[in-house]
Every structure is written in C-alpha cells, then in structure tokens.
Amino acid sequence: MPRWIGSAGCCVQQGSMLMVKGTAEEELWSIPSGGLEADESLEECCAREVWEETGYRIDVVRELMIKKARYGEWDAEVHYFEVKLVGGFMKIQDPDGLIADIAWKSKTEIDEIQLQYPEDRALILDLLNE
C-alpha cells in the first residue's frame, strides 16, 4: 500500500479560518495542506504549503493532531498544525495548479460550505471557538 505523509496549516485570525478552494469540479474548501518533500520536516512542509497555496508566510505554533486515513489506494498521514501569520499577502502561487480561491471563512461560513475533507469540520469549528 503506498503511503503519503503531509502537513496542514490551521490559521485563525479575527474569528476566521484561512481556507483554500480546489480546482476540481466540485470546488471544495480545505485547510491549506500538501505532501512532505525529501529532506523536509513536517513543520517546514506546513510553512511551504501555506505559502505556496495562499501567499502567506507563517510560523508553526504547535501540532494539533495527526489524521490517518485511506484515500483510494493510499494510506495518508496528515499532521495538522496551528500556525500564525508573520508576513506575505493573499496570492495563489500553487505550482501544482490545484488552488482556485483563497478566503478567510467565519464559523457561520464553515457550517455552510462543502469541505474536501468533511471530517476536518469539527477541528476547524473547535479552533474558531477558542
């Protein structure tokens, strides 16, 4: 079974979560995330993926959880981190061309949008309630 390891950056600012919308037909929203590259720590992966997908520079604050799941034939392990903005500006610069939009989503909006990973909704709402 092939294995995929990645990181996701959860950034809350002024009561909203930083989210990205994919380019797939359904245009589902998710937390900025992506796969670990060679010689890269999970924290470095998180910072790179948030920058590539949103244009924002972040610092990792703490690890929140590890999600293990199977997607098709892949066993996935995603490390979720709480992050804080330290620079940059909103700009799609994803080298894979998988991002269609970037937005700050409120708790009310999170309740209404379709998520690429619906199992992340509870984590997102918990972070917005802190």
Rank of each mutant, 00 (worst) to 15 (best):
P32N: 06
V78Y: 02
G34T: 14
T23V: 12
T23H: 05
D120Y: 02
E26G: 13
I124R: 01
C11P: 10
M90W: 00
N129H: 11
K84I: 04
Y117R: 03
E52Y: 05
N129Q: 13
R121S: 08
M90G: 02
F89C: 00
H79E: 14
A24Q: 15
E119I: 07
S41C: 14
E130L: 14
A38I: 07
Y56H: 14
P32V: 09
I110G: 00
H79Y: 07
G6S: 08
W29V: 15
S16H: 15
E40I: 07
I92G: 03
G22D: 12
E119T: 08
S41V: 13
E25M: 12
L64I: 13
K67P: 03
I31H: 10
L28V: 12
W29T: 15
V12A: 11
V20T: 09
K21R: 15
E26F: 04
K105D: 11
A24V: 09
E49Y: 02
L36W: 14
I99F: 01
Q14K: 13
W4E: 12
A8P: 08
V83Q: 04
N129W: 00
G88E: 00
L85Q: 09
A76L: 08
S33I: 05
E49F: 01
S33L: 07
L128H: 07
V86D: 03
K68R: 14
G55C: 04
L42Y: 14
M1S: 10
R3F: 11
L64F: 07
P32R: 07
C10H: 12
S106K: 08
E130M: 12
S106Y: 09
G97A: 08
C46E: 13
Q116M: 11
I110N: 01
V83M: 02
V78K: 09
E49G: 01
D126R: 14
D39K: 04
A122H: 05
V61F: 02
M90D: 02
E40Q: 11
I31R: 12
M1W: 10
L127N: 04
G34I: 09
V86N: 01
S41L: 13
I66Y: 05
K21Y: 10
K107C: 08
V20K: 01
D101H: 00
H79W: 11
D101Q: 03
M90N: 04
I66P: 13
D120H: 00
